[in-house]
Amino acid sequence: MHVHRFEKLWIGLSLVLIAAFIGIVLFGFTVMDLKVPGVETGETVDPATVLSEGPFAQPGVRKISDDHYEVYMLAQQFLFRPGSAQPLTLPARTKITFHMTSPDVMHGFEVPGSGLNTTVIPGQVATLTTRFPEAKTYGVLCHQYCGSAHHNMQAEIEVVPPSEFDESNLIAQ
């Protein structure tokens, strides 16, 4: 079959484009060391009892070490606990691990303008670890339609300098 040389050119370019897309993603996950949210492997929670048993019965911030805190957060219709009733306060430049689950339906957790974004699924615990680079207030949105007041489901994360972080509100381990 005779193929015009221009046709050959853009068939070739199309293949280069596909290779470039795959290459850029591989570059991100190897050289740039990007990460995606994880699920605590093998660990499931019962959505019916998650509010009364286990760490999610007392959602909040726990201290692991001076440079590492963890947040147990519930995403439920139509609020984040902690975060919605009053801002979740966290120290800047400190490692923060979020553990999130839902007692009712599927929710989303997104900090707009950042790389923090995960789905929160009943029965599973979504985890992600981050460092907030600066002291400022970040918003949180639910990005999975979860019911009639989905559009009101939001929270705030107030990031403060580590020296100003009040540890009196931490949950005991």
């Binding site: 484009l17 991100g28 995606v36 900090v111 790389g115 981050t130 460092r131």
Partner: peptide, 23 residues
């Protein structure tokens, strides 16, 4: 245009907006 916009979306919007997931 496609390559430039893809690079912009990936490297600017997705990969470098802090805070991001580190673990």
């Amino acid at each position: 245009l496609l390559l430039v916009l893809y690079a912009l979306l990936y490297f600017v919007e997705f990969a470098t907006h802090a805070p991001h997931i580190i673990e």
